[in-house]
Design a binder for these strands. Structure first.
Lengths: 342, 342
DNA sequence: CAATGGCTTGGTAGCGCTGTCAATATCGGT
DNA sequence: ACCGATATTGACAGCGCTACCAAGCCATTG
């Protein structure tokens, strides 16, 4: 026969309830919905809990209530600064709430993503934040059957699973090119790395803008599947120059590439922007303080993370967010590196 | 009387056991220690689980076993690239294991850290990874009484709580200064931001190296509590030049500051390294591809995270790691920005 | 004054799994 | 063929909390 597995010093809800002179269930209610208690008992339970240093056992709570207080977050990369900003927003928004974060890294693989998704959803998360709109069909199915708020972040698309917050990468890239065209640049190269779906859409935006201006030329495009880096920016820029020596500007799908291109220009003693204009994407902090300062497309990454988490919280609170799809927009930061052609 | 709360479609361990023709407890054992089963039953349980798509309920497991399969990770910042590298190492090491990560951000506050620590430890984590060696006395007490592997990362110190992996920030800074001295630089400035304990120790290393060379001068030091950024690097460097216009080199406590200083030099048309040598810290990727390339102290951040997680895993497996304290060292990457003085 | 209804509180059972120990099967050695 | 030792398997209870229902309490109402 199994023995009583008594746990000596541990403080359980029952101990708090006894000290407060109420039933365990009333004490339990105090932690979930204090409003439901009479003022007197509320105070008694509160002080008893504090006196004993009670910390609820989350596993027991999850088992009994059949739900957890965990919000799953799926992002494709931990290295990319873009996602660290988003993450910071999410953590900040959830700070102080009773929810915690379960983070996983899909490494830009939608199959990996699907696997992680199943893993997460099996534990009944309170909510889910997932990157992008390119999930596998199975992933979508799983998400549609599950009953928890889901926010897709980073971009916008036609059929949100539940909620969505992001901006149009196509429009953002197009606006960057429009800026360069307005400044008088004509042979505008394109540098792309990693080529994930969002980068792909930036390429589409570039292509559309160039085609509209009747300036499109496939020779101007250099891309690679290799993950981005400053060094890679230099290499790709060199490749581009080899293919199209007559370019007068380059649009980089992110700021690391742009910085690499800038350094490569310096190495070749090419004047920026006189001989070569450069525009990046994301507007990381350093873009505003380089020499020359680098133009970029500002995206609101921190707000994206923060709002996504807040949308989840609101839904969990029963208050449906004002809009299920939020466009955070972007703005082209026009700096020295793309100033008007002399 | 309470009703049977039956959950219709859900697959529980009992269902798997029934299909496999074994008792639930045997099925349970399969998931925790397959070796303990006979080959036949092992195969039967395995195929039954796969057929039903069984996913264990972690909350129930945690409640019954009185422990979780979560490794807590406490880091001071989500923005700092340094920590994203460490995190990536941790995630990579734990990928495929049954453990998951619970991440929290202390925001460089040891009080915040203590609060998060209590929160974590109350849920009985399988292990803990914590940044640095400057915890509050209470934090230390809590950690010493708890029974789980704990790894302190990022630096080394005299009295590890349990395990420790890092390097000497003091020695690393001293080596950077030694390099500059060897190259013939004499008036070497110091730029510091955030000034967390590790940065402080780098300052100590700088001070010691300069004092040994009889070149120490407090006028050469510029620090601030403001979080680091490239822009700040430019600003601090300008401050330093105002205080000590005769400096011939500058040691920056991180690479962002170094990059900012480089840009400021360019803005002032100061030749690097002819008029001003620059050395950074951490050796982020871009340091090797800037123009000129920037010297820095390479630290093994990814390995630090990876090894820390592996040390936890080994301990949980009952295999005590070879060494409880690991010094990952550093290396001074000598590049153009600190080449010999002409 | 009984009936009604809202607010609070409590009792009971069970969420899905595993720790402990006991029982049974297997095996080599004498 | 018997013994003890080892490898497998099973029974039971309970981890700490909450869902559900019921009951108690009080004020209001016809």
């Amino acid at each position: 026969m199994a023995r009583k597995r008594i746990t000596p010093g541990k403080i359980r809800l029952a101990e708090v309830a006894k000290l407060a002179g109420v039933s365990p269930i009333t004490a339990s209610r105090f932690f979930r919905n204090p409003e439901a208690l009479s003022v007197g008992k509320r105070a008694r339970v509160e002080s008893a809990a504090k006196e004993l240093g009670y910390v609820p056992n989350l596993a027991a709570r999850a088992l009994a209530s059949q739900r957890t207080e965990v919000i799953g977050v799926l992002i494709p990369s931990l290295t990319n600064n873009v996602f660290s900003d988003v993450l910071r927003g999410i953590y900040d928004a959830l700070d102080g709430s009773r929810y915690s974060i379960q983070l996983a890294n899909t490494r830009y693989s939608i199959l990996q993503e699907e696997r992680l998704l199943r893993l997460f959803l099996a534990q009944k998360p309170a909510g889910l934040i997932i990157t992008g709109i390119n999930q596998t069909a199975d992933s979508r199915n799983v998400m549609e059957t599950v009953d928890c708020p889901i926010v897709q972040i980073m971009e916008l698309g036609p059929s949100p699973i539940d909620m969505m917050i992001g901006f149009s990468h196509f429009d953002a890239a197009k606006a960057a090119i429009a800026h360069l065209l307005a400044q008088g640049y004509r042979r505008i190269g394109f540098l792309g790395a990693r080529m994930d779906p969002r980068v792909q859409r930036r390429l589409d935006g570039y292509r559309a803008a160039m085609a509209e201006a009747a300036l499109f030329d496939p020779q101007l495009i250099v891309t690679t599947a290799i993950p981005t880096s400053v060094t890679l920016g230099g290499t790709l820029f060199a490749d581009l120059l080899a293919k199209a020596p007559d370019i007068d500007a380059v649009f980089c799908v992110n700021d690391d590439l742009a910085l690499g291109a800038l350094f490569e220009c310096k190495r070749r003693h090419m004047a920026v922007p006189e001989q070569m204009a450069i525009v990046g994407f994301n507007d990381l902090e350093f873009m505003a303080s380089s020499e020359p300062t680098l133009s970029s497309v500002r995206t609101n990454r921190y707000e994206m993370g923060r709002n996504a988490a807040m949308m989840v919280l609101e839904t969990l609170d029963g208050r449906r967010p004002a809009a299920p799809v939020v466009d955070l927009g972007f703005s082209v930061m026009e700096r020295q590196s793309s100033a008007r052609r002399s």
